[in-house]
Write a protein that binds this DNA or RNA. Structure first.
Length: 676
DNA sequence: ATAGGGTTAG
């Protein structure tokens, strides 16, 4: 390279530091900058003399530097210079450019490079797919795979000498090829020959890259096709491909297939184990997730923060506080603290296990918080019915982060659960007018819930009618719950019929409708609904909630029959329960426990399984507020979470596997005002 | 020059 031109180019790029002094690791994962404009800047390099010549190695060096530092602007200057000086490039160098744009997040530029290449190899395609995949552009990522496989058609090729196809200009689209041809750069100008180039096959990199894009409706279809490609090319037991495969299967809901792939792996590493843990956790098979982790521990495998994040999700699902605390201890000992994502998971785990104190402690000790940290904390308060804390925390988050859509979901549902009707309405207005966020259907759902709980059914109905979305069945269900709670029989009937129209095969809709008829004494209508249920063969589901308080009691005591004060406690609980029922409220075991004095409560909790204790401990926090709300506003507490714990308990104690039924019964019963 | 697992909400 000429000294002078080297000097000139370096001076243009003088603000870049191409020495290797990069900090090795970052405490927080660094995000990729947003895509840049697609225009390749010719203007910037106008002052670089076009006669300046650089060698392949020089460009290679410069582009590598740009890629590493995500210096896309400077990369563009180099790219433009390559074009201007008619540099004959190679596939290798074109790939450098492509990767530079991909890593810099400028996918449109990368695509331009790819499409302009007259010759591409598996790396070119993989790099492009990686770009699309990492930016959530799954469709485009997958789209490249058949394009790549089709490339092996017959092509014109001139004799190129030793440099072979690598020397073909990739810049055909920019008119470079003609120039190269006329200047004789492409070897002796003999007649072009037709050459068959073999189809470019995916390698292990390609497969591992595209598999995460197999999501959504056709995800499983695509995933299985790619799996078969992997089998054909013998990459299906490759560690990277395998963990992508098993992750793909668990994400499309085929955990069994995920496990099959996991078992086929030649060995296990942290990533594949984490993938299966996360798969189990996401499918609700929390105990399976824990088992894998325990096995991992026994094998002495080193965990990283992603493993813990996945594990904490499973622990949160089980409400296993003690185990969660142990894992928190492990996290501290692994010196993995101060990963925002990990701390967020800890906050969530503690709040779902009922220990808001611990949640808050983690939250307060974070050196840096993301919007998810705030949202998780807000959710925690909301689920426990602590509306005031929700609003207070919401007000203080602005100095640190900007709230997003999920924030408002958390705050609105927090207000709803906490009985803060006017505050909730204010915040919805604030969201729309001040924050200029377009409410999603979920936000309208919160609004409906908020108004419904307060008995403002007509207003809730207005919201549904005027919102710019088609109401979902969940939304109608929420309104229906409110109708039952406030004895709005006529609106309730309309809503229930609507639900039945939307989901004619959902047994619980028949149950709801017949309950409404029963509530207004229309027994003939009840019989008609039951009859149509029978015709549809939907009668297997219980007609009413089959979980009775006394059954819970039975299980509650069966695990500790020898407790000295068993009888006394039982009597006390029964008495309180009767009192609540007599007052016209729905008894909830957690409310009952609240009224038992501390010593008795402790003796109950101590003698029983961890899950049960935690479940009640959690609702003990929540019910303080809910009893107040129930009494002041005559609205029912939200039992969604509690239903989850009850189902856990039941599964454990009487080994009933059908948890969805318990969710349905326990959750449905609460919103319908039935006794469980 | 290309590669795998992660957090809130419903």
């Amino acid at each position: 390279m000429h000294r002078r031109s080297q000097f000139i180019l370096r001076r243009h790029l003088s603000h870049l530091h191409f020495h290797s002094g990069e900090p090795a690791s970052h405490t927080f994962p660094r995000s990729i900058p947003p895509p840049c404009s697609t225009a390749i800047s010719f203007r910037v390099c106008d002052s670089i003399p076009p006669m300046a010549t650089f060698g392949l190695a020089d460009y290679d060096d410069l582009l590598r530097g740009c890629t590493r530092r995500r210096a896309i602007k400077e990369g563009r200057v180099i790219h433009a210079h390559m074009i201007k000086s008619h540099f004959v490039t190679s596939v290798r160098l074109a790939n450098r450019l492509l990767v530079m744009y991909v890593k810099g997040g400028s996918l449109e530029d990368a695509r331009q490079v790819l499409d302009g290449m007259s010759q591409r190899d598996v790396i070119s395609w993989t790099a492009m797919m990686s770009g699309y995949s990492q930016h959530g552009r799954s469709f485009e990522a997958l789209e490249q795979l058949p394009r790549m496989l089709r490339t092996g058609a017959t092509v014109h090729r001139r004799r190129l000498g030793s440099a072979d196809v690598d020397s073909v200009a990739y810049l055909r689209g920019n008119g470079q090829l003609r120039h190269l041809e006329s200047s004789g750069c492409l070897g002796s100008p003999e007649a072009p020959q037709m050459v068959n180039i073999r189809s470019i096959l995916p390698n292990e990199y390609t497969l591992a890259t595209v598999l995460p894009s197999c999501t959504g409706h056709s995800g499983q279809d695509h995933g299985r096709q790619i799996h078969s490609l992997a089998v054909k090319s013998n990459f299906d037991s490759h560690m990277f491909v395998g963990s992508s495969l098993l992750d793909m299967y668990s994400k499309v809901g085929e955990v069994k297939d995920a496990r099959r792939v996991f078992n086929m792996l030649p060995h296990r590493d942290v990533v594949s184990c984490t993938a299966i843990i996360s798969g189990y956790a996401q499918s609700g098979l929390d105990e399976e997730a824990l088992k894998v982790f325990q096995q991992l521990q026994r094998e002495g495998m080193e965990c990283n923060y992603v493993t813990f994040v996945s594990l904490l999700t499973a622990i949160a699902g089980l409400a296993a506080l003690d185990f969660g605390r142990q894992v928190h201890g492990l996290v501290i000992r692994s010196e993995l603290l101060f990963y925002v994502v990990l701390d967020n998971s800890l906050i969530d785990m503690y709040s779902k296990c009922g220990s808001l104190k611990h949640s808050r402690r983690v939250f307060d000790n974070m050196p840096e918080r993301s919007v998810i940290s705030w949202n998780t904390m807000l959710m925690g308060y909301g689920k426990h019915g602590l509306g005031r804390e929700v609003v207070q925390l919401f007000k203080s988050m602005f100095r640190e982060v900007k709230p997003n859509g999920v924030t408002f979901l958390a705050v609105l549902s927090g207000c709803s659960h906490g009985g803060l009707i006017d505050e909730g309405l204010d915040i919805f207005g604030y969201m729309v007018s001040d924050q200029r966020l377009k409410p999603e259907i979920g936000h309208y759902g919160c609004l409906v819930d908020l108004l419904g709980r307060a008995g403002r059914i007509e207003e809730a109905l207005d919201v549904i009618k005027n919102m710019p979305y088609e109401p979902t069945s969940a939304l109608w269900n929420s309104l229906l719950g409110a109708c039952r709670l406030h004895a709005k029989i006529s609106i309730g009937e309309v809503v229930a019929r609507k639900l039945l129209d939307m989901e004619p095969d959902n047994a619980s809709n028949y149950v709801i409708l017949s309950n409404i008829y029963a509530a207004s004494g229309r027994w003939q209508d009840v019989a008609r609904v039951r009859e149509s249920m029978k015709l549809k063969k939907l009668t297997k589901e219980p007609g009413r909630s089959s979980i009775q308080l006394d059954k819970v009691m039975h299980i509650f005591f069966s695990s500790d029959r020898s407790h000295p004060r068993r009888k006394e406690i039982f009597d006390k609980i029964t008495e309180v329960c009767e009192r609540i029922k007599a007052a016209g409220y729905v008894p909830d075991l957690s409310c009952v426990l609240h009224d038992v004095d501390d010593e008795q409560k402790e003796s109950i909790l101590l003698g029983h399984s961890e899950k049960l204790a935690i479940a009640f401990g959690l609702m003990g926090n929540a019910c303080r507020e809910s009893i107040r709300i129930t009494k002041n506003l005559r609205i029912c507490i939200d039992c969604h979470n509690f239903a989850k714990y009850v189902s856990n308990v039941y599964q454990m104690e009487i080994s009933l596997r059908d948890s969805s039924r318990f969710h349905l019964v326990a959750g449905g019963a609460c919103s319908c005002g039935d006794y469980w």
